[in-house]
Design a protein around this nucleic acid. Structure first.
Lengths: 144, 144
DNA sequence: TTCCTTGCTAGAGCGCACTCTAAGTCAAGT
DNA sequence: ACTTGACTTAGAGTGCGCTCTAGCAAGGAA
């Protein structure tokens, strides 16, 4: 087993490696998402596992999990007890949310694509047809 | 051609119909996303096309287009001139962004799914194996 | 020794998209 | 006449996730 001799990184190196700013890394820590070992002088030293954690947080964040939920997950991990079941449940719940979200976004995207096709059609048969088609987002005065 | 006799809706009815609150509808209007006709007494009356516009704004918003970009689009629509080409370009640009985003989210989702599978595997062969696997998001003291 | 870089903390500030409040108008119903 | 409810405005407040600032410390190079 390797106990010592683990390569550790400074906050700057982690920022560089992960694309997360040092500010944000400290913020994540203060928010309870991360606990990073320190040198005697107070400087952070990130182990491999800490960097992995930052990357995993990235997966969660970029799929829309709020900080507080990530914190709940992190708390479970750190609780010492075997909370695997709960953690898995939490992740599965999130996965369901994300899948639903993706489907929803896809629907909205379809609506946009339809509009683009409408434009393309309208522009193809462009023979300077008066007031063209009906176009939402337009406006006029009605004023009773 | 139907000129008059168009059914119009109050803000409350539109809120009901679209799921967008009346507050937000007014906010969208103040932000320049919408121009809604008024009665003599100042009350809004939404035409079919205005409701369509609200719905289309929904497509844009829920795929992450910022208000200011929707405003740009709305300004093009309202400019009177034929800005179809620009509007289409704007929407196509957005579509590309969304497609890229969706792919990225899918990748992050894969990372999460992998983790869930890891949990499932670890829990399947649960024979009380000491310190289990290496788990990111954990922490310890190192302190130089 | 004097820089320069990198790190530290507490806490303020920011951008976004709402969301709500206060104070008022108006029309219909009892 | 009064109440109710839906509407109006300007502007304040909220929640989120950063993002930045000020002021300081430590370590290495010139």
């Amino acid at each position: 087993m390797t106990t010592a001799n683990e390569r550790v990184l400074t906050i700057g190196e982690v920022a560089e490696a992960t694309g997360v700013t040092d500010h944000t890394l400290r913020y994540y820590e203060k928010a309870g998402l991360l606990v990073v070992p320190r040198l005697a002088n107070g400087q952070r030293r990130y182990r491999e596992m800490d960097v992995k954690a930052v990357e995993f947080i990235g997966h969660l964040r970029r799929t829309g999990m709020p900080i507080r939920t990530i914190r709940e997950y992190a708390d479970l991990v750190r609780s010492g007890k075997d909370t695997s079941a709960e953690r898995m449940r939490l992740l599965e719940q999130h996965r369901e949310n994300v899948v639903r979200d993706l489907a929803e976004q896809q629907k909205h995207l379809d609506g946009i694509t339809l509009k683009i096709e409408w434009y393309r059609a309208a522009m193809d048969q462009r023979q300077d047809s008066g007031p063209q088609f009906a176009e939402p987002l337009s406006s006029a005065a009605l004023a009773q």
